[in-house]
Every structure is written in C-alpha cells, then in structure tokens.
Design a protein around this nucleic acid. Structure first.
Lengths: 197, 197, 197, 197
DNA sequence: CATGAATGAGACTTCATTCAT
DNA sequence: GATGAATGAAGTCTCATTCAT
C-alpha cells in the first residue's frame, strides 16, 4: 500500500521491481534496458511508455525507496525530546536503512551522484529535506544548550552525513554485513564526546 | 620529474594528460576513447598500445595522482610529533588535495567506486596505504595518551575519512570553491573535542 | 516454405540472404558486418538482435543450406535398394549440391573448418548425420554381400568423402564448372571396382 | 642445413620459427603480427623487413615445409619400379608427413586454400609438381598394364589426393594421433582393388 | 640488423530509443 | 495496455603496416 501508488499499471510496477532486483547485483551502467525488460517479463518498448528514459526510471525507483526512508526517519525522531538523542537516532536509522536496503544505498551512494541531472530530480528534493531535518535538530540542540555554540551546524551536519556514508560504503560495495548497533553507537560516541580523554 | 617516469613514450604521456584534462569537465562514462585521442592529438589505437583498456587508463591516471598525494601526506606529517596534530594535518592536506585537484577528487569520490575491479587495481593499493597511515597515527595517539582508549580506532578513521569526503563532495560535484582552512579546522574541532559544551 | 521458418521476421531473413549473397563473391573473413547490413538493407545493429555474432550468423546460414541438402540426400537414396547404387547416388547428389550451391560448398570446404567452434555448432551436427548415413549404407552393403567384408567401413567412408570433396575443391576455388555426371561416375567406378585391370 | 638457407639472418629465422610454433595451436587468422613478434622475441617492424606481409610470411613457412616434403617423396619413390607400389608409397609418405608435421598439414589443408593469391605463390608451384608426379606414376602404370586403361588418370589422382587429405583432416583439426600404417594401407587396399568382393 | 613509436582503417558490437500495430 | 521490429549513433578495441632512427 505504501510501496506503490494505487493506480500504477502492472507493467510499470514490474519494470521498477526489475530494476531494483538487478541493482542488487550490478551497477546501473551495466544494466541494460533489454536486461530490465527481460527481468520484468515485458518488452523494452514498454519502459518508454512509463518512463522518459532509463535515468528517469532510476530516479523513480530511488524516490520510491526514499519515501519509505524519510517516513521512517520522521517517525523515529518524533517522540524524542533530546537533540543529541534525536541525532543518535537519525544516525542509527540511516545506517539501518542502508543496511536493510542495499539497492537504495547503492543508488544513493554510488550511482546517481555523478550525473548532474540527478540534482534536479524529485528524489534529490527528498535528500535536501532529510539534510534540513538534521540541521534543524542541531540548531535546536544549540538553543537548548545540549550542543556547544562554537560548533558550526553545517560542519557538524557534514561530519554526521560523511560518517554515516563512509561507514556503509565498504559494506555496500562488497556486500558484507553491517553491525548497525555497534557502528552507529561508535559514531555517536566520537561525534558527541570527541576523542580526547 | 615526479610526474612521469622518464622512460614513458610521448604518446603515453599525452594520452594520460588528455584524460586528466577531459575529466575536469565530464564524467568518465561520457568521455570516449575517440575524445581522448583527439585531445591528446594521437590516434585511438595508440591508447591500446599503452593501456589494456579505457579503465586501465583511468586507473593509471588515478595512480599517478595518488602518488603525488601520498608523497605529500607523508612529507607533511613527518615533522609533527603530536598525533592529533598529525591527524589535523592529514585532514587539512587531504582536503587541500581534493580542492586543488578536482580531477583526482572526481575520480576517487565519484567514478571508480562503483566498479568492482577498481578494488583490485594498483591505485586502490595506495588508498589502503593511506588508510593504514591514518590508523597508525590514531594508535600512536592512544599509546601516547592523546586519544582516549575507549575510542575504536577503525570507527574513528571512518569518521575522519567520511568527514573529509563529504566535505568535498558537494564542491567537487558542483565545481564550487572549497575554503580549505575553515573546513578542515571545523572538522578537526568537532572530531577532537566533540560537540558537547 | 522449406527455406525459412515462417515465423522469422523479415529483417532476419534479409540478413541471412545477404550473407549468402556476399559469400558468392568473397570469403567470410573479408565480409564485414557493415557490408552485410548494406546488402540486406538493414542496420548493422539488427544483425545482433537475431544472431549472437557474425559467426553465429554464418552457422545459421550453413545450417539452413544443410537442411535442404540432407533432405535431398535422404529423398534420393530412399527408393534404392542396392547399397552400391545408394552410395553412387550419395556421391552424385553431393557433388551436384556442391556444384549447384557454391556458397554452401565454399563455407563447408574452405571457411568453417579452421574454427574450432564450428565443430560445436548445430550445423556440424548435420554433417555428422550425413556421415553416419553413409556408414550405414556401407554396413548394409557388407551384410548383403555387395561390399567385401575385408573393407573397413570407416576407411571406405573416408575415401568417399575425400574423393567428393577433392573433386569439387578446385572448381569451388576457381569458380569453374563441374561436370557432375562425369565426375561422379568416374569416382564410383574407381572406388567400387578398383583400378587394377 | 636443409632447413634454412645459409645466409638467412637470425631475425628472419626466428620469425618463421615463431609462426610455425604458433600454428601448432592456433589458426592463422587468430595469430597476430604482434603475437608472432612476441614469440620470436623481435619487434613487429622486423617482420616487414623480411616479408612483404603476413601472408607472405605464411607462404614462406609453407614453402619451407614443402621442400622437405617434396624431397622425401622423391627419395622414397625413386627405388620402386612397380607403379602401384609407388602410389602406395606416395600415399604412405604423404600421410606420414602430415602426421609428423601438423603445422604443414594445417597450413595446406585449412589455411591457404581460401585465399586466391595462394595459387600464385611459390609454394603452390610445389603442390603442382607433387600432383604432376602422381599423375605420371598413374600413366606409367597404365603403360605397364598395372592400371586399367579405363580409369581416368585425373579422376584417379583426385581420388588419391582426396583420400589422403580427408584421412588426415580430422586428426589435424582435433590434434589426435594418426596411425599412418593402418590408414595408408586401408586406403591403398580400397583404391587399388575396389570394394566389391 | 633491428627497434619502437605511431597510424588508420575498420571490425564487431551495444544500447537506448522510436513507432506502427 | 503492450508488443516487436527496427534504428542509428556511438563505442571500444584490434591489427596489419609504416617509418624514422
């Protein structure tokens, strides 16, 4: 119900599923439209009925994954009142999502970034919203006194995002397991308290 | 003298330079061998005399950039005795390199990571060495008491690398300027002291 | 009706015909895919929709020719009861086919034999069937007493096949005419009765 | 001494040997000049110092092999006075040569025949001489009464050559062993006495 | 006697994409 | 709602060959 818009014709759904499926194993560039069609059990032509082009298809798939992600992030942080706890939750939840959803991670971390037109697509808008959410939490933390005023919010956000991504990158690339709990705790520990004794 | 091995035939050098040049503007996938040849002023065939294929050429270029980078890192940190100062220098120097050398940054941050065979190439070996250097500095810091023992060295390294990369990513993608000093200082500030007041 | 399976798309048929046509004048290696496409009046890409590669196309064409050939051989020998007469017919019919169908002869006698993968393709299976047919006729002849028991069937088959091929080779190479009747009669005469007075 | 002309420069010899060597495993078309140069331990350019082109090199190698072959045939048949015995010896000797010298066999049976310019090269002259020798023996046999007058000499020669070649073809292609004695005896048996009881 | 750098033509192949049905 | 035939542009790569040194 949350996964596909109700009115979606079967072919459209099959095609998106097919790309998702193929991206578990291969990178986008080595996936061909004919491969997608074969996996979906439809003809190549049909892809162009529903998507402007191959990249558009990718962005649609990404957006679909992202909606679920964003929803979860917002749900999770809602109840929490402490800013640092919220951030810890965002970190945890992001890593969890990457871990649980390799395709999403692959696309986001490795595929789309190199094409300039990604930054104009609908899916990127959601990334911006996600980033904005984090920035707001940081600012709240500074207002409430949980976070030091001499920390630059943008820099902090960068460090958070970078840490999350780098933590997942290797496992996404090599397909290894991610120990979500350990990884996210360690990151939070370092970022919040620093490394000095 | 440091840039090319003297024995290299002129054509080889021209080809590598041509790819470097083209990567300032386009991503690797949209660069064609015929484009490279044209830019280098040689014939397409010559590329395959010196490089196994287009990817091999990319890795050679990357490796060449990396050698300069690695050299600089080692030079820079040599004189320093404090571990945290060394790490701050590594961060600064890395960001500086990315900032000064967009091609290198593009390749490393956006292009190669999605191809599995990159991780088997010679250039990746240098990445590993770079990463190892950082890990060793962290461990020295723990021995000397500068860095808290309850910080996991691998996690800390991940946070460092992630922060560096993410800090540069946007500017590399959009071609904007990086204020090396400010960015690196802020990162070090957060990572070393944490964000709590 | 016997020539192409009705389901074949027009492009596929045109391509196969084009190769057949071109092979009348040139050898396979000097025929290019672009030449084939031009002759067929389709685009080069279409070749690869229907055939794995250029060689696959060749083998398909060969197989098609072979099916007609095999059919004819079987038809021809059906009515005959004497083994030697059957063999004479096989010889005659084979030479006739080579004579009437230079393309087929060229491919079989000169082109495919040097590529190891020909011997794994479907067309070669038909050659084996043809050879088997001959062997069986020989054995029947020995059973019926027409052919001496101290003649080795395999050796005899070799001699038959070799004689047929060599008889046609020169004319295939130089494009000269073959006097089917005379050639086949002479071969049968020698093979059956020997050369001693 | 018989193998190379005395004055041959070392490079020339190395190149010819290299091609011979490579042809033991691969067919001529898939052997590249660069492969030849590598095997010979010289540079590609040198090939064109000594040979007009790649094909010329092939013909030179063939000719060299052929000289040894021709010499042996003539030696062998010299002493014999009976025509049929001479022919039996030619058959035996030819098969023996093919068996012992796969490269020679490969070139002659599989490679050169499809190029029209082979028939203008020096090596082909030797083939003609060999064929002529056989024809003369057959005619002598008819004069002496050993061979029936109603056998056409050309047809008989064709049968002989075809039988020899076909007998060796499979083993040359697949690299299997040839039992020279058995094969040649069986062929002579059939050709001379026929197959009727 | 030989090298090594470079060429150039073209080969095969791939793929996203379109359009009539 | 979907098919299937066809396109066309480009892309990577191969290889025989030449020539200055």
């Amino acid at each position: 119900m949350a996964k596909q818009k109700k009115g979606s014709p079967p072919g459209r759904i099959k095609i998106m599923k097919a790309l998702s499926e193929l991206m578990k194993k291969k990178d986008f560039h080595s996936i061909t439209t004919s491969g997608i069609a074969a996996e979906a059990g439809v003809t190549e032509g049909l892809i162009y009925k529903y998507f402007k082009d191959k990249k558009d298809l990718l962005y649609q798939v990404l957006k679909q994954h992202f909606e679920a992600f964003q929803e979860k992030i917002e749900e999770t942080t809602q109840g929490e009142s402490s800013s640092l706890d919220k951030l810890a939750l965002v970190i945890r939840c992001s890593i969890e999502s990457y871990a649980a959803n390799r395709v999403f991670a692959r696309i986001l971390l490795l595929e789309v970034r190199s094409s300039p037109d990604y930054f104009k697509c609908a899916a990127y808008d959601m990334v911006k919203r996600y980033a904005k959410t984090i920035l707001e939490i940081i600012r709240q933390g500074q207002v409430s006194g949980e976070i030091s005023r001499d920390v630059d919010p943008h820099a902090f956000r960068q460090v958070i995002l970078g840490s999350i991504e780098h933590a997942c990158l290797k496992e996404v690339i090599f397909g290894s397991e991610i120990d979500t709990d350990r990884v996210s705790e360690r990151i939070s520990r370092i970022l919040f308290k620093g490394v000095q004794p």
